[in-house]
Design a protein around this nucleic acid. Structure first.
Lengths: 147, 147
DNA sequence: TTGAACATGAAACATTGTTTCATTAATATA
DNA sequence: TATATTAATGAAACAATGTTTCATGTTCAA
């Protein structure tokens, strides 16, 4: 483990403590893998990075806990493609606006567009909004430039 | 089967023909069940309405075909909650803008808000958009008024 | 250091996704 | 209208994912 990775895990330890969660191996590992990844990752990709520390049931329960604590979030691309991403916490707690997600149908990568925030939708009278998820599919910058 | 249902199935037959699809029992049944439902339905709910005409594998393949032909669409609420809805075709083919979906976390119903269209998002340079899915969660009008 | 509270992993089962293949059904046209 | 071609069906079988129960192991506060 290099210095950057070690620092990452120390930050995660503190984050867990702040959220009132016990520091366990699976929580630290999964969180730090996601916090160091540019793209959101699937269970399979996380599993690969965890090596033999991975257990399916523990993974299942760990992501439940981490999602509830808003340390990570789940992005559903498709009914069979589920990805996980570290929730960046550097934004103002007050205007905690969610960002949109972009899925490239060519390279199949999912990108958190942190700078593109979800817009406000005027709902019919009587509806109360609590969450909004936006997923845009298309061709990403990288694939587009390669052509 | 009442008159309205029979009319529905006749329309579906024509729709399938227009799309170059064979008229089969499963396609007609599933399409007409969805076209007559106010809310999007889950596989289980569709199964219930189909009675003993239901077969899991046929369902799986039928929805694939119907989605591809844009006769129905799939809405993913959650990784374990998938719903299907009839695609209303009364909109102009040219500005085929998608509508948003609202999921009520209280009554767990999903609502196609046909009148609330997805907004245009300004993506970073180089990104090309083809589809956009918006799912808003909260409390629906009905549940809100009951309180 | 130790006990209460919680997390883990094994087992077992449910649900959903998916392919292969022999059989059956739909439809165009002869 | 009969039939040949083409496609859909349903059985079987398996993979992946979701989920609970329970005995055991771990964390952390006092």
């Amino acid at each position: 483990m290099n210095r950057k990775e070690k620092e990452g895990e120390m930050d995660i330890a503190e984050l867990l403590k702040n959220k009132g969660l016990k520091k366990t191996n699976a929580r630290v590992k999964i969180s730090s893998i996601l916090s160091q990844s540019v793209q959101p990752l699937s269970e399979k990709e996380i599993k690969k990075k965890m090596g033999n520390e991975y257990d399916r049931i523990t993974f299942y329960r760990t992501v439940q806990v981490l999602i509830k604590a808003d340390i990570i979030h789940r992005i559903i691309v498709d009914n069979t493609q589920i990805k996980y991403a570290f929730t960046k916490d550097d934004k103002n707690e007050l205007d905690k606006t969610e960002h949109i997600h972009f899925y490239c149908t060519q390279c199949h990568k999912l990108i958190c567009l942190e700078d593109v925030l979800v817009q406000y939708y005027e709902l019919p009278k009587g509806y109360i909004q609590s969450e909004c998820a936006v997923l845009i599919k298309g061709i990403c910058k990288n694939c587009n430039e390669k052509k």
